[in-house]
Design a protein around this nucleic acid. Structure first.
Lengths: 139, 139
DNA sequence: TACAAATTTATAATTATTACAAATATATAA
DNA sequence: TTATATATTTGTAATAATTATAAATTTGTA
């Protein structure tokens, strides 16, 4: 399904800016910040405003099209994948990785709260697989 | 154990400011922000600077005495309880609640990552028990 | 008591995000 | 097609949390 269709299905007017923001977000695995999205798109739309990025991201989160991520203190990051999964922020390479969960693990999380749950995040800070293996030098 | 002893055990010089910040943090269940701690303590130390709050909190997190919490977009919150547990931010009353975990649940979280884990957070946004029951009006 | 190191304080700077209002684009009805 | 109302985007200024910096103060030790 195209991102234009995705927007229409969520009753969001599919403007050029919104489509390109979603296109970018769905093409990367890096969980970019608002500023990273702006920097990536401004060559394509030189007139683009940062406000449009913020407006659009807030709208998309509100409507449940994407997820926001508070794994870093300062920046909010954004994730096109809204299925329940965890995130690892590697303290060596500073990248954010997806960690997928089994159904039973997702159920356990949903059962932690009695009332309605709107959003949950599992944010882990540690060493990613790649950096962990680099540390194991042969000798 | 007193908070002064706690500081000494972590090789942190127990200044008046540091002791009072820890005393406040250990006496509340509200997971306060830096600014809330400042507002609570400034009547006791009128000369107190916000920088001391930030310096101290960063030091305490770095040394593993307390935990920082990124459950809200803007503010960092702080938690005296460093045992593994989840947090619920109630979207009605806007309070942060502790959700304690069973050992098997903690193990599951630790096994999500191969490499070393420095910190993990489970942040849930939803309705707390109190607000959930208020919603169930008798009729 | 004197001196060096650590801590606190006060102010200015930084940075992510929001507020606001003007400009532009879009959709609808005549 | 044209007029008009509505929604969106843009640009600038404002806000707010946090950090940088350097002077002042406190603390520990010789």
């Amino acid at each position: 399904m195209s991102n234009k269709t995705l927007l229409i299905e969520h009753n969001i007017k599919p403007t050029i800016q919104r489509i390109l923001i979603l296109d970018y977000l769905s093409s990367v695995i890096s969980h970019p910040t608002a500023d990273e999205i702006y920097t990536a798109l401004v060559p394509k739309i030189p007139i683009l405003s940062r406000m449009t990025i913020y407006n659009t991201l807030n709208l998309l989160v509100e409507k449940g099209v994407i997820h926001s991520l508070n794994i870093e203190e300062k920046n909010t990051r954004y994730d096109f994948d809204i299925s329940p999964h965890a995130h690892l922020l590697c303290t060596k390479c500073h990248k954010v990785y997806d960690i997928f969960l089994k159904n039973e693990q997702i159920d356990f999380l949903k059962n932690l709260v009695e009332g309605e749950i709107f959003d949950f995040q599992i944010n882990i800070k540690g060493i990613c697989k790649k950096c962990n293996n680099l540390g194991k030098t042969s000798h």
